[in-house]
Simulated assay, not measured.
Amino acid sequence: MVLRTELSGRDEEILTFLNRHRYATTTHIRDVFFAEHTTPTAGTRACIRVLHRLLHNRLIARLERRVGGTARGSAATIWYLDAAGERLTRPEGARRRRFASVSTPFLAHILAVTDTHVALIARARTGAFQVERVDLEPDTWRSFLTRAGTAGILKPDLFVHLATTDYDDLWYLEIDLGTESIPVLLAKCCTYTAYKATGRAQAEHGVFPRVLWILPTAARTARLRAAIHAAADLDDRLFVCTTFDAFLAAVEDPDVSSEPTPNNQERRNP
């Protein structure tokens, strides 16, 4: 068994990243932890050496399946914590988590969330903003009582706090892969509205974070935006709908989006 004292600081950070995300590709890990290399190829080679060492020590394991899209070869390998790595990163008193068995739709969604987080990290390196905080499920979940006295639960995919010299921007992020109907997405928008009415998020953050829907196509984005606008019980100023290719522009400058920023809500001065 590998002792914690035998791990480098970067080793521990990689294990923590996998603990938080559950699954990540070689490319994800390279882009977060090996970005200092002069070329992506050099970064990939260094990353693979470290991952294979962690694999040899039973700290991480890889899924048999590969991720789709443009990634090929080792860069498309999907990694997760093996028993020893899970044990090292498990909080005291927490139950053991198992990662080897997962459905394809669930895995695709988890990797899309990881894509989003990694894109924020990479963009922050350019100086566009600082990533002050990122919460993942289940840390994003909030139970609450609606005004009608019924139990509700909010489950954002991500909570993000971004900071610039002028503003702090708070976001709930929802990653949609087109597997749910528009009415299902609208129902989740209603959950955000109900949670906002409790005032709990405002007490926690000082403002109510804006909700960013990241969707797979421009057509689906337009459909959801139109549905939100047409819903009498939804304030469409609270919701921004965009594609993955455009989401960084949306978080960098919410005022450029098609919906105006609500006064004194989702953007605040430091």
Rank of each mutant, 00 (worst) to 15 (best):
V2L: 01
L7V: 00
D11W: 03
F17G: 12
R20S: 12
R20A: 12
Y23C: 14
A24W: 07
T27A: 15
H28N: 10
I29L: 15
I29M: 08
D31L: 04
V32P: 09
A35I: 06
E36D: 13
T39H: 03
P40L: 06
G43I: 02
T44M: 13
C47N: 03
L55T: 07
R58W: 04
E64H: 05
E64Q: 08
R66A: 02
T70L: 08
A71R: 09
R72L: 06
R72M: 03
G73M: 11
A75S: 12
T77M: 09
W79L: 01
Y80I: 01
A83H: 07
A84L: 11
A84C: 00
G85V: 02
R87Y: 03
T89S: 14
R90C: 09
E92M: 05
R95M: 09
A100T: 11
A100H: 13
S103M: 04
S103K: 14
S103Y: 00
T104D: 12
T104I: 02
P105H: 10
H109Q: 06
L111A: 04
L111E: 06
V113E: 07
A128T: 06
A128I: 03
F129Y: 15
Q130Y: 00
E137V: 05
W141Q: 15
S143T: 02
F144L: 00
L145I: 01
T150G: 03
G152P: 05
L154R: 07
K155M: 10
L158Y: 09
F159L: 08
V160C: 02
H161T: 08
A163G: 10
A163I: 12
D169W: 07
W171T: 10
Y172I: 02
L173W: 09
L173F: 13
I175N: 15
L177Q: 15
E180R: 12
S181L: 02
I182S: 00
V184R: 15
V184M: 11
V184Q: 13
L185E: 13
A187Q: 13
C189M: 07
T193E: 11
A194D: 11
K196L: 03
A197S: 11
T198Y: 02
G199N: 11
A201R: 14
Q202Y: 06
Q202T: 15
A203F: 00
A203W: 00
E204K: 10
H205Q: 08
V207C: 08
P209M: 08
L212N: 09
W213I: 01
P216G: 11
T217P: 12
A218D: 05
A219N: 02
R220P: 02
A222S: 08
R223V: 00
A227R: 06
A230I: 00
D233Q: 04
D235S: 08
D236C: 13
D236E: 07
D236Y: 10
R237T: 15
V240I: 12
C241Q: 01
D245V: 10
D245E: 15
L248V: 02
A250M: 01
A250N: 03
P254Q: 11
V256R: 14
P260F: 04
N264H: 13
N269L: 11
